[in-house]
Simulated scan of single mutants.
Amino acid sequence: MIAFAAALLLLTQTGPAGSSVVITFETGASTGSVMVALYNSEAAYEGGPAVARMAVPASGEVVARFENLPAGDYAVKAFHDVNGNGEMDQNPFGMPTEPYAFSNNAVGNMGPARWARARFPVSGETAQTIVIR
């Protein structure tokens, strides 16, 4: 009985797959790619695996679309890979040298924006515009 109740609770929290997230990025550049990672939990966002990753060419309109997601909370980390090496370049002190952003245009304090600031609910189609700085 307890297992059934736990399974029912899990189903009501996540819902069926079928939601989507559409992210439009404002980059101000036309070279390289925008590297996007989508997370579905605080633990994953803080250092675990992403639910999905995508590289979107930075020429023209830069849009990342993630389909068939279960409803729930998600957050995005993104950076503009200006030189196309597939990595977030950093200076000798570990500070990013390429533009980056988080969902909700959240800003971090001495590091990435926290999950609480970057997370957003997804149910059906959810859209955001993120400015990469």
Rank of each mutant, 00 (worst) to 15 (best):
F93Y: 11
G124V: 10
Y100K: 07
S103P: 02
V122P: 01
P99W: 08
W115K: 08
M110K: 04
F120M: 13
F93P: 00
W115R: 06
P121D: 08
A106Y: 01
G111V: 10
A113R: 03
F102R: 01
A116C: 00
T97F: 04
E98V: 08
G108A: 12
A106S: 06
E98P: 03
A118G: 07
R117E: 15
A113C: 10
S123H: 12
G124D: 07
A118N: 08
F102N: 00
F93N: 05
A113F: 07
V122K: 08
G111S: 10
Y100A: 11
R119G: 04
V107D: 07
G94A: 09
R119D: 03
G124Q: 11
A113H: 04
G108S: 13
S123A: 15
P112N: 05
F93D: 01
R114A: 14
P92W: 13
V107H: 11
E98N: 08
G124P: 07
F93R: 09
E98W: 09
P99Q: 13
G111K: 12
E98C: 08
N105T: 03
A116D: 15
N104K: 12
S123G: 13
W115V: 07
M95D: 02
V122L: 09
T97H: 06
A118P: 05
A113S: 09
S103N: 04
R114K: 14
A101Q: 04
G111R: 12
P99K: 15
R119L: 11
M110V: 04
F102W: 04
A101F: 06
A106L: 02
V107S: 13
A106M: 01
G94W: 07
S123R: 15
W115D: 04
P96D: 02
V122W: 06
P112Q: 01
S123D: 14
M110P: 00
P99I: 06
P96H: 03
A113Q: 05
A116H: 05
M95T: 05
R119M: 15
P121E: 13
W115M: 07
N109H: 01
S103T: 02
P96C: 04
G111Q: 12
W115N: 05
V122M: 08
A106E: 00
P121C: 09
R114Y: 00
G108M: 12
P96G: 01
E98M: 07
G111N: 11
R119Y: 06
A118V: 06
N104T: 04
V122E: 05
P121S: 13
W115G: 03
G111T: 10
E98H: 10
A101T: 15
G94P: 05
V107E: 14
R117G: 13
P96W: 01
G94T: 06
M95L: 14
F120T: 10
G124K: 12
R117N: 15
W115I: 09
T97E: 13
R119W: 06
